[in-house]
Amino acid sequence: MQFKSPEGVLECTPNALVVAGWTGRDRAAVDHHIEELAAIGVPAPSEVPLYYRCAPSLLTRDTTIAALGKESSGEAEPFLIQTGGKLWLGLASDHTDRALETYSVAHSKQICAKPVAEDVWAFEEVADHLDQLELKSWIFEKGEWVVYQEGTLASILPLTQLMSGVEMADGTAMLCGTLPAKGGVRAAADFKMALHDPIRGRTIEWSYSATVLPVIA
């Protein structure tokens, strides 16, 4: 997989993928969300935060992915990749099967591709202002693009803290959690996302669509 950085093109073959969940910095809000999801059948996490292990082959640069059934949607997340002895920050979507979540969150994450943006920044260049980075996503709904998520990384546990729970060896990639969905989590086939650095005046953007595969028995 290739990534574009201000230093040039990076060649990397991810050999481990971690999807961090329940990473909100406000623990009371996280607990409340766990209770809300439990009410609709989503099992509570065994730990907070929780590190789901997924196949690195799920990471994709494709702008069209396939999902089983109609109940899936994306989540914009900070993306970390360790390669060449250096840590990089990018943007990815934890596309998830919402129906399968009620059976197993881990299964719901493993079943869906994880689109990842092409651009990355050196982590050392943003480490001193991570909380000011702005994360935003949109879904195409009822004929128009609507804001689905919006906020700063200050709402997510510090990325250095999240990394302390994972061995970030060369080839390790991690999705670092997300922001609440405006209007609630819901299915959406078309997804756009952006990570903006207001200090350095630059933005990483990516978009993709999910086609629906029929659920047959």
Rank of each mutant, 00 (worst) to 15 (best):
M1F: 06
K4L: 12
V9S: 09
C12F: 08
T13F: 06
N15K: 15
N15A: 12
A16E: 15
V18I: 10
G21W: 00
W22G: 01
T23I: 05
T23A: 11
T23E: 02
G24A: 10
D26I: 06
D26C: 09
D26T: 07
R27C: 03
A29L: 14
V30I: 14
D31W: 12
D31Q: 15
D31M: 13
H33Q: 10
H33A: 14
H33C: 04
E35F: 02
L37G: 01
L37P: 00
A38C: 06
A38P: 03
P43L: 08
P45I: 06
S46H: 14
L50R: 10
Y51N: 02
Y51Q: 02
Y52E: 08
R53M: 11
A55F: 08
A55G: 09
L58I: 12
L59C: 02
T60L: 09
R61Y: 06
D62E: 13
D62S: 14
D62C: 08
T64A: 13
I65V: 15
I65E: 03
L68E: 07
G69C: 06
G69S: 06
S72D: 01
S72F: 05
S73A: 13
S73E: 04
G74S: 10
E75P: 02
A76D: 04
A76N: 03
A76G: 12
P78F: 03
P78R: 04
F79N: 01
L80Y: 02
K86W: 00
K86G: 00
L87R: 11
W88R: 00
W88L: 01
L91C: 07
L91G: 02
S93A: 15
D97T: 02
D97H: 03
A99E: 14
L100N: 00
E101I: 07
S104D: 09
V105Q: 05
A106K: 02
S108D: 02
I111L: 14
I111C: 13
I111S: 14
A113G: 03
P115C: 04
V116D: 00
E118V: 13
D119H: 14
V126Y: 01
D128R: 14
L130T: 07
D131P: 05
E134A: 11
L135Q: 04
L135N: 03
W138H: 02
F140E: 10
G143P: 06
V146F: 06
Q149F: 09
Q149A: 08
Q149D: 10
E150Y: 09
G151H: 11
G151V: 10
G151E: 12
T152P: 04
L153W: 01
A154W: 03
A154K: 11
A154C: 06
I156C: 05
L159Q: 08
L159A: 10
Q161C: 10
M163L: 14
S164P: 01
G165F: 05
G165K: 02
E167T: 13
M168D: 13
M168I: 12
A169G: 13
A169S: 14
G171P: 03
A173T: 14
M174H: 04
M174C: 13
M174A: 15
G177A: 12
G184S: 13
G184C: 12
V185Y: 11
R186I: 07
A187W: 05
D190I: 04
F191M: 08
F191D: 01
K192Y: 09
M193C: 06
M193V: 04
A194D: 07
A194Q: 12
R200N: 15
G201I: 08
R202L: 12
R202V: 13
T203Q: 14
Y208R: 03
S209K: 11
P214L: 07
V215S: 09
I216T: 15
A217D: 15
